[in-house]
Amino acid sequence: MWKEAGIEPLTGKPIVFPSDDYELPRPARDDAWWRGLSRLGVFRKGLAVALEVPGLILLASAAGFGALARDAGLTVVDAVFMMGVFFALPAQVVMVDQLARGGALMGGALVVMLTGVRLVPMCVLLTPYLKGPRATRPGMLLAAHFIAVTAWMEGYRRLPRVPELHRFDYFIGIGTGLLIASLVGTAAGFLLAGTVPSLIAAVLLFLTPVYFLLALLSGATERADYLAIVAGLLLEPPLFLMVPGFDLLITGLLGGTLAFFASRLEKRT
């Protein structure tokens, strides 16, 4: 049922992936926890996730984005709207940062496009869980919109333990709750950034990079992922100084390619 795909470098645990005859895990939680719940009830259980740690982190990092957007000269409406339509902090931060530095809009949009590639594997991995009796086509598009690092991690962690019938509604609840948290956070961060002491404003701005790096690390499963992260960390400073504006694009392409070939070479020997 499971096949091994290597050893995780940090914990030393084997990484397992579903094999072709893989069946979704059966719900471990007692079915009684879910019994008699209406669709709305399941949705609300999902919403409640926003009140736990992931929701709070998202609230805080969205506040960081709100502060960044204000620094870049956006209005509060722009910032909240941007949070809602993208619902992926890396894309938004890249774009706002590019614009704040007076970079070209088209260049920013291209980098946004590159950051979005990360969402493909996340969507691919959640689709089997979301497809079910309750999933409709527009519903799946909505669910996909919610898939960004935080909602993906919560979905991937929780959905296998949810009865198949409820998975879709539960995830829509998770996504809606996290979206609301991020919108509130963005507005709060934006409005507070002007009035709070500069120290708190600095902390809000700092939450975003810390959260990204830790989320990247927690999303990394293979040695190639760690190599790519390290390559990105090392390549960015010189590239930022040498080719400002294209630094992220080149860091991504060069770092990712180097990491890819390094891990292939390592596997072969």
Partner: peptide, 25 residues
């Protein structure tokens, strides 16, 4: 795997840019 690597390196680069060369407060 390659696409994953490119995306990870890019976001890692963004982390460095925001930490080493921050804008604002």
């Amino acid at each position: 795997q390659w696409v994953r690597g490119v995306a990870s390196a890019l976001v890692a680069g963004l982390v460095v840019r925001l930490t080493l060369f921050p804008a604002g407060a």
